[in-house]
């Protein structure tokens, strides 16, 4: 591959000539704008970037990114992206998926991509509904949700995607919100810098089939009371005046009035903690965006990445045995000559 000169891009360089076809007012537009803007600011040639998606509203994303990309099949984006990442450690590989694509039909691929810790950045747009198929309950819809496919209320207990990712050995786990572009970009930056699989749950409003699902975190009146901003090295407090605090009681996170506890008893957030238990406890504060809900980076810990380990095995094998010699190989089980 020839050397490429890094160019400074603008957001327009990442737009394609394809008409963006999400519903007017869809949260996907703001996420697309945030990602395009973020990519333009990276010192990364755009030919080094690959977006892979599955099926669903969010999965149209690659068509609108002027990079390399595949719009694949339902649920399989992490698997296809894994092949790209293992084959080509030089690339920056991004997966765009949704709550149905990533957590239902593709749940298996997602958890394995997380545990392997590959060079994959997974953006899971969670709108808690099936949008493309017009409004059935999803694996993140709240129990009891009334939809076309659950007129009497959904009998399913939903996944908490952050808890799931932490349980699946993810080394980087974050949550952000479509409407908060600055926060989204901050999280994207940290995810990009992370070596290994990064998982970002993005709360994304579907204004057609599940409008205002995240209103408790985005509404003017409610967001101060409910949004817990996770900051590395900082005590976990929230509220207009920081009047709420999170403490750990018997391993479980609990919200208490800040003035009811000693300052040193308030949980201090450590994204680099080798043990994910505290991050998991934080993720259990809410099961969906109801009541106080943490957003930000839950976990950002370092461990070796899969594709680099695989690459090293190839290097080691060549160092030990020399480059592959076919002639020797086909004689390796013993031969005889017929005259």
């Amino acid at each position: 591959m020839t050397d490429t000169i890094t160019t400074k891009y603008t957001r327009a360089d990442f737009q394609t000539d394809q008409e963006v076809r999400w519903c007017p007012g869809c949260g996907d537009y703001t996420i697309l704008a945030a990602v395009q803007g973020f990519m333009a600011d990276l010192d990364l040639p755009k030919e080094q970037i690959v977006f892979v998606s599955g099926i669903g509203c969010s999965s149209r994303f690659p068509y609108y990114m002027n990079t390399y990309g595949i719009h694949s099949i339902h649920g399989r984006a992490p698997a296809i992206a894994s092949g790209i990442a293992v084959a080509r450690p030089d690339l920056s590989v991004w997966v765009v998926t949704g709550d149905g694509d990533g957590l239902s039909i593709g749940g298996n691929h997602l958890i394995h991509a997380l545990r392997r810790n590959m060079n994959l950045k997974i953006l899971l747009f969670n709108n808690q509904i099936y949008g493309l198929t017009k409004g059935q309950y999803s694996p993140t819809s709240e129990k009891g949700k009334r939809t076309k496919s659950s007129p009497a209320g959904s009998p399913d207990v939903p996944f908490n995607p952050v808890s799931l990712a932490l349980g699946a050995e993810a080394s980087f786990v974050a949550r952000t919100i479509d409407m908060d572009r600055k926060h989204t970009v901050d999280v994207l930056e940290k995810a990009y810098e992370h070596k290994g699989t990064a998982f970002i749950e993005i709360y994304q409003n579907c204004n057609v089939f599940n409008d205002k699902a995240f209103i408790e975190l985005t509404g003017k009146e409610t967001r101060l009371e409910n949004r817990i901003n996770l900051e590395h090295g900082q005590p976990v407090t929230f509220g207009a005046e920081g009047e709420h605090a999170v403490v750990l009681v018997d391993g479980a996170a609990k919200v208490v009035p800040t003035d009811s506890v000693a300052a040193e008893d308030i949980m201090v957030h450590d994204v680099h903690a080798p043990n994910p238990s505290a991050a998991f406890a934080l993720s259990r504060l809410s099961h969906g965006p109801y009541g106080p809900t943490p957003v930000g980076i839950f976990r950002d810990s370092v461990r070796s990445s899969y594709e680099q380990d695989v690459k090293q095995q190839l290097i080691d094998a060549q160092a030990k045995k020399g480059p592959g010699d076919l002639s020797k190989l086909i004689r390796s089980q013993g031969t005889w000559k017929v005259k």
């Binding site: 690959v50 892979v52 390399y68 595949i70 694949s72 399989r76 698997a79 296809i80 992206a81 894994s82 092949g83 790209i84 990442a85 293992v86 084959a87 691929h109």
Partner: peptide
């Protein structure tokens, strides 16, 4: 799927 990715 991974093979399709590698082919790409």
């Amino acid at each position: 799927g991974a093979a399709v990715g590698a082919a790409f």
